[in-house]
Structures are given as structure tokens and as C-alpha cells.
């Protein structure tokens, strides 16, 4: 007789595999668009406009924005993967397969989050490869870069999950990305150093969690940051903890999935 842990492990692997197969199957919708968009970003902001901007924090503009663009695609894709996949799971009722089975909530959550991280990672790598055509990327600290990459991906996969739990229509899964995620990333210092901003806006920017991730990630790659890296890591971890607890509560209360 198998013990519960063996079952959980296989169930977890099953969910992750299913999630990866899902976005690979529709790669034209999931992997291709971010590759195209970031190529355009590199050409337009990096080359055409960037050459006129000159330096930012002592780096060529294109070198400055590369870390932010990579992380932005990780954020968007981790989020998008979980929100659309879990919403579909609810909408077509095959969430019931998981509710009937002896799979605890944290395994379900973990499976979907890791699925989102897998897509975030794949897109992140893709974008990094594309960026090599435009800049010579040299990485200051591999450890930190990787850590921020993964933590950011986890955080936004969790956020996507929560969005999916509350979503009742297809529109609901695009509202948050459009009205929250995009502004936060654009204002999160992807394209500029917040030192360029007036004091008030600098101060306000500090309330934006994405700023911490982008800067830490940039620090990992370039070795420069607008903010303290340790503070940033604590903040990211704090958000992950809060969203994890919140997601598990939603699941155990059965919000949106159970009568």
C-alpha cells in the first residue's frame, strides 16, 4: 500500500506535467508572443530610441533595460499561465477531477504554481537568448539572478491563481493584468532609474513591489540597484508567504469551486 506522500508526489508531478503540456501544446499563444514583443522592445527602445537616450546609471540604455524586460516577461507569463489554466479548469469543471481525488489543496496549488514558473522560466530563457543578439549580457551574480527570477515567478503565479479563483468570466482574467500588472511593471523601473523621478514619485514608487524585483534582478545581472537588495528579498518573500496563505484559504473555503 502506498503511503499518502507517494501519492501526493505523483499527483504533484501529474499536475505539473499537465500544465507544461498545456502551454507547450499552444506555444503559438504562449511562447511566441512574448518572444516577438520583447524583440520589438529591444529594437525600438534599445536600439532606435535607446541610442539617443545615452546612459542610464552608467550603462548603455539597452543594457539597462534588458534585466527589466526579462523579468517583465517572467512576471506576465507566470501570471498568465496560472490565471488562464486554472480559470479553464474551473470553467470546464475539471477541477472536479482534483476535488474527488485524494489530493490536498497545497498539492493542487503547488502544481499550478510550478506550472506557471515553468512557463515563466521558459519565456525568460527565450527572452534572455533574444537579448544576446542586442547586448553582451554578463551576469554579476548568478545566484542572486536566479533566486530573484524564480521568486518573482512564484509570486506572480500565486497572484494569477488568486485572480483565477475569483474570476467568473473571461473578462475577469484580463482586468488585473491590464489595470494592475502592466502599470506596476511599467512604473516598476523597467525602463528608467527611479532617481530620474521627482522626490514624491520616487517615494511613491517604493510602494510598488515590482520595483524591488526589477532592481534586485538588475543588481544580480549588472550589479546596480536603486534599493537595498536584502530589503527587496525580504519584501518578495513576504508577499509570497501572504499570497500562499491566502490561496490556501481560498481553496479550503472552496471559493469559486465548491458549493
Amino acid at each position: 500500500m502506498q503511503n499518502s506522500w507517494q501519492i501526493y508526489r505523483i499527483a504533484f508531478q501529474t499536475i505539473v506535467t499537465k500544465e507544461i503540456l498545456r502551454f507547450m501544446r499552444i506555444w503559438v499563444q504562449t511562447l511566441l508572443p512574448p518572444a516577438i514583443t520583447t524583440t520589438l522592445y529591444f529594437i525600438i527602445f534599445g536600439r532606435l530610441i535607446g541610442d539617443r537616450i545615452g546612459e542610464m546609471d552608467g550603462y548603455r540604455y539597452i543594457d539597462f533595460i534588458v534585466p527589466g524586460l526579462i523579468l517583465m516577461s517572467v512576471i506576465q507569463n507566470s501570471y498568465a499561465n496560472v490565471v488562464s489554466s486554472f480559470f479553464g479548469t474551473k470553467l470546464q469543471h475539471y477541477i472536479e477531477e482534483l476535488l474527488i481525488a485524494p489530493v490536498p489543496h497545497w498539492v493542487v496549488l503547488g502544481g499550478y504554481v510550478v506550472g506557471g514558473v515553468a512557463r515563466g522560466t521558459m519565456v525568460g530563457i527565450l527572452v534572455t537568448i533574444i537579448s544576446l543578439f542586442f547586448t553582451d549580457l554578463s551576469i554579476n551574480s548568478y545566484g542572486l539572478t536566479l533566486l530573484v527570477f524564480v521568486l518573482t515567478s512564484v509570486l506572480f503565479a500565486l497572484a494569477g491563481f488568486i485572480n483565477a479563483v475569483y474570476a467568473k468570466t473571461f473578462d475577469d482574467i484580463s482586468i488585473v493584468p491590464t489595470f494592475v500588472l502592466t502599470p506596476l511593471t511599467y512604473l516598476g523601473g523597467v525602463f528608467y532609474s527611479i532617481e530620474l523621478l521627482p522626490e514624491f514619485w520616487q517615494w511613491l514608487s517604493l510602494a510598488n513591489p515590482v520595483l524591488y524585483m526589477v532592481n534586485t534582478f538588475r543588481f544580480g545581472i549588472l550589479g546596480i540597484s536603486d534599493i537595498d537588495v536584502v530589503v527587496a528579498l525580504v519584501i518578495i518573500l513576504g508577499f509570497i508567504a501572504i499570497l500562499t496563505v491566502y490561496s490556501l484559504r481560498l481553496l479550503s473555503r472552496g471559493v469559486g469551486i465548491k458549493e
Binding site: 507517494q6 505523483i10 499527483a11 501529474t14 506535467t17 503540456l21 477531477e97 482534483l98 481525488a101 485524494p102
Partner: peptide
């Protein structure tokens, strides 16, 4: 795949 996933949720190796 629907069946294989289902089996997986019950801990049956792939």
C-alpha cells in the same frame, strides 16, 4: 491524457 492524469491524481506512476 485525461485518463493518465486521473491515474496520477491517485498516485499511479506514469
Amino acid at each position: 491524457e485525461i485518463l493518465v492524469n486521473q491515474a496520477g491524481y491517485y498516485g499511479i506512476p506514469r
